[in-house]
Simulated scan of single mutants.
Amino acid sequence: MHEPTFYILTALAERPQHGYGIMQTVARLSGERVMLRAGTLYAALDRLTTEGLLAVDREEALQGRLRRYYRLTDAGSAALGAEVVRMRAAASMAAARLRTHEAGGFAFAPGGAS
């Protein structure tokens, strides 16, 4: 899963949000490393909705403009959960190899094999 997708799904894990709210939440959650532009965000929202990971929760008119709120679906929640498990396993493996390196051992086998 790409990092922007991870953060979009994470942003919607607590509650439905509209596009601008998602952009702000993603920026905050990522420590401002992931800054989504409107075009990028809305293309991702369309793709994630088509894939069934998100759904439109509701629409409301605000000052003559339509504001669409998105929510995480059960499939989106499952995909995010699977990514969390994958990331934890990868981080655990990396930490174990780093401990081996710091202890003076080899983090990889001589000859290039890992």
Rank of each mutant, 00 (worst) to 15 (best):
D46Q: 15
A61T: 07
D74S: 12
S30K: 10
A61H: 05
A44N: 09
T73C: 04
Y70G: 03
T49F: 05
R99Q: 12
R99I: 04
I22P: 08
L54I: 05
A78E: 09
A91I: 01
G19N: 07
L36Q: 07
A27F: 06
Y20P: 02
I22D: 12
E102K: 14
L54T: 04
L48C: 10
L41K: 12
L36Y: 11
G52A: 05
E51R: 13
A96W: 06
T25E: 15
M35N: 13
A95F: 03
A103M: 08
V34N: 09
M87S: 09
I22R: 12
A82P: 00
A107S: 15
G31C: 03
I22F: 10
F108M: 13
T25H: 13
R71A: 12
G81F: 01
L41I: 08
G105W: 07
A107D: 15
D46K: 14
D57L: 01
T40E: 15
G64K: 02
A109V: 07
T50I: 06
M23P: 09
A38D: 14
D46E: 15
T25Y: 07
Y20V: 09
V85A: 15
E60C: 02
A61R: 08
L72N: 01
P110Y: 03
L72W: 01
E59M: 13
L62D: 05
A79F: 01
G52Y: 02
A113P: 11
E83A: 04
T25A: 15
M87V: 07
H18Y: 09
R71Q: 12
Y20I: 05
A96K: 09
G104F: 13
R28V: 11
L41G: 11
E32G: 06
A103S: 14
T49R: 12
A43I: 03
M23I: 11
Q24R: 14
G81K: 03
G111F: 02
L62N: 06
S30W: 08
A91H: 06
R68W: 06
R28I: 11
E32C: 07
A103D: 12
G112S: 06
L72A: 00
L41F: 12
T100P: 00
A55H: 05
E59S: 15
R58S: 14
T40V: 13
L66K: 14
A75H: 05
Y69W: 13
G39V: 00
L72R: 03
V84N: 04
T40R: 15
A61E: 11
G21Y: 04
G19H: 06
L98H: 09
V85W: 04
A96N: 07
G104C: 10
A89C: 00
V34P: 11
A78F: 00
R86C: 00
G76L: 01
D74G: 09
G112I: 02
A75R: 01
M87A: 10
R33Q: 11
A94L: 08
D57Q: 09
R71M: 07
L48G: 08
F106Y: 12
R71T: 08
T40W: 10
A75N: 10
I22T: 10
A78R: 05
D57Y: 08
V26P: 13
E60V: 04
I22V: 14
A82T: 03
A103P: 02
A44Y: 11
L72V: 02
A38T: 11
H18L: 00
L80I: 02
P110S: 06
A107T: 10
L62V: 07
Y42T: 12
